[in-house]
Amino acid sequence: MNHASNAHDFDFFHGHWQVQHRRLRERLAGCNEWETFSGACETRPLLGGAGNVDDNLLHLPAGSYRAVTLRSFNSETRQWAIWWLDQRHPHQLDTPMLGSFDDQGTGLFYADDRFNGQPIRVRFRWTDTRSDSPGWEQAFSTDGGQTWEVNWVMRFERIERVAG
């Protein structure tokens, strides 16, 4: 990954979005059955532009819930940190994902975490960030990143841009 990252990497995401989600019904279980659902997202800059927060509404088949993503840029390491918090677990801030964007606007972010008690490597990938329809995917690895299971994919459609 080229360390072209800067505090403006997520400026593309400021605004209001409709979201189409695809998620594996079961993760790390050999499942090939996907569920689809809609959502909404509103992203605003923070920290003078060196951070941002988005408010998410997810309409899962089992019921809707809200969640927050918090992002912060470290100008010394040229990396972003990404945290997730949702109302299903209101006192649990997820392990931060760390990463950066390359010159083409693709972002890769990684963390070591646990899933169902098992140690995993997590990857977020942002694509098409220079369009009004960026994509995001999450993948898990149980072998230190040699192989990946993509388990959640989101496609965003811009409703309104918000200035940063």
Rank of each mutant, 00 (worst) to 15 (best):
G144T: 12
D103P: 00
L57H: 05
L47N: 14
E76G: 05
T142V: 15
G117R: 03
P45E: 14
C31H: 08
N116F: 05
F37A: 03
R78V: 06
N32H: 13
A29D: 14
L108D: 13
E42R: 15
G107M: 11
F124V: 14
Y110T: 01
S133T: 12
R27D: 05
R71K: 14
I159G: 07
R125S: 13
T95K: 07
L108N: 14
H59S: 05
E149T: 05
A62K: 14
R123E: 09
P61A: 07
T77E: 10
P119N: 09
E42T: 14
L108E: 14
N56L: 10
G30C: 08
L60M: 15
D54Y: 00
W136Q: 02
V122G: 00
W152V: 06
S141D: 12
T43M: 11
D113Y: 06
E35F: 08
D54M: 06
T142E: 07
L58Y: 11
T95E: 06
R25G: 11
E35L: 09
S133Y: 00
D102T: 03
H89A: 13
R88Y: 00
E33A: 13
I82D: 08
Y110K: 02
N52V: 01
N116R: 12
F73Y: 15
F101N: 01
G99Y: 02
L46P: 04
R161N: 11
N32L: 11
H91W: 05
Q92M: 12
G51T: 03
D128Y: 00
F109S: 02
C31N: 15
L58R: 13
T36R: 12
P61F: 08
R71M: 04
D94G: 06
G144A: 11
S75W: 03
T69C: 09
W34K: 06
D132I: 04
L98G: 01
T127D: 11
D128M: 05
R158N: 07
G144V: 15
N56Q: 08
L28F: 03
Q87H: 10
W34G: 11
I82S: 10
R121W: 00
D112H: 08
F124L: 15
A67C: 01
D102V: 04
L93D: 07
Q87M: 15
G105F: 02
C41G: 02
T77Q: 13
N74T: 12
Y110L: 07
S100D: 14
E42Q: 15
R88D: 11
D94E: 14
N74Y: 02
R25Q: 10
L70G: 12
F156W: 07
Y110H: 10
G48E: 14
E33W: 03
L60Q: 11
W80P: 05
A111P: 00
L57C: 04
Q118W: 02
T43A: 12
N52Y: 01
R123A: 05
F109N: 03
P119T: 09
D112A: 07
E76A: 09
L70R: 13
L70P: 03
H89Y: 08
A81V: 07
P45H: 12
D113G: 05
L85C: 01
Q104Y: 04
P96M: 03
D132T: 02
G117M: 00
E35Q: 09
W136P: 01
R66N: 00
R78N: 07
G49R: 04
E149H: 07
V153F: 05
L58D: 07
D128V: 04
L57S: 09
E35C: 02
Q138V: 04
D94R: 10
